[in-house]
């Protein structure tokens, strides 16, 4: 049974660093199924907002509440970073790592690793060192390593920002498959095309403030705020 984390409610949530507010105050209520895209230009606060939800950015005001206890919720989440973090180990050992930490037996972890390597197309590389993989392969590895514990929710912070078109499409396909399997995804991007392709819901962020939230279709067809209209027209680039 998958842990029910949603709805997620942020109430005047904010994070500051040395007196400077990076994000917030944010009021947000997420209970949609599927894939939620946090969209905004560079420096808008996407990474910080995702970390705030995940619990790895310090909450300096307001609250972040899940349907269950925060620690419990955290246990059922994974986070994929913009620059993939790979362990200095083989592909297989990268994949078994989170399972072994959770006490899964070596053999079971290994067979899960093989299954996931196959799903993301890395099975020819299982015994290779993760460091020698290409950027796209490393990111696929990071995504498979996030999914291998069968989390209820995965955060992905601009997972394809530094990849070429092909790797981007492959990763989008992997994510859509994960979504079809029932995993919730919250993905940030500054790429409008990507958001149009994969988003079910959109959270539009600019200058550390959430300006608009809603189903992707209504956001793209009829943006409500002048900021969102300007961004969609391409007037806000950075």
């Amino acid at each position: 049974m998958v842990m029910e984390l949603f709805p997620l409610t942020l109430t005047r949530a904010e994070t500051s660093r040395r007196g400077k507010r990076l994000v917030g105050p944010v009021d947000l209520h997420l209970d949609g199924q599927g894939l939620c895209v946090v969209m905004g230009p560079n420096g808008a606060g996407k990474t910080t907002l995702l970390r705030l939800m995940h619990g790895t950015a310090r909450l300096t005001g307001g609250s972040v509440k899940w349907a269950c206890d925060t620690d419990e919720a955290r246990h059922h989440q994974a986070f994929v970073f913009q620059r993939p973090v790979v362990l200095r180990r083989t592909v297989e050992e990268n994949l078994t790592y989170p399972l072994r930490l959770r006490g899964v037996a070596r053999k079971a972890a290994k067979s899960a690793a093989h299954k996931w390597a196959e799903r993301v197309g890395l099975q020819p590389h299982l015994t290779r060192r993760a460091m020698v993989l290409s950027g796209g392969e490393q990111q696929k590895l990071a995504i498979a390593r996030a999914l291998i514990t069968e989390p209820a929710l995965v955060f992905l912070d601009e997972p394809t920002a530094s990849l070429d078109g092909r790797a981007m499409r492959e990763i989008e396909a992997i994510l859509l498959q994960a979504k079809a399997d029932g995993t919730r995804l919250i993905l940030s991007t500054h790429d409008m095309g990507q958001a149009r392709r994969i988003a079910d819901d959109v959270v539009f962020i600019l200058g550390g403030m959430v300006h608009e939230t809603g189903p992707a279709k209504s956001f793209f067809d009829a943006p409500q705020t002048p900021e969102a209209r300007a961004f969609l027209k391409g007037d806000i680039v950075e």
Partner: peptide, 15 residues
């Protein structure tokens, strides 16, 4: 150096 590399991941995994 290794901790700088691994920091985000290990913190996220709550090790």
């Amino acid at each position: 150096e290794l901790w700088a590399e691994y920091h985000d991941l290990l913190i996220s995994m709550n090790v």
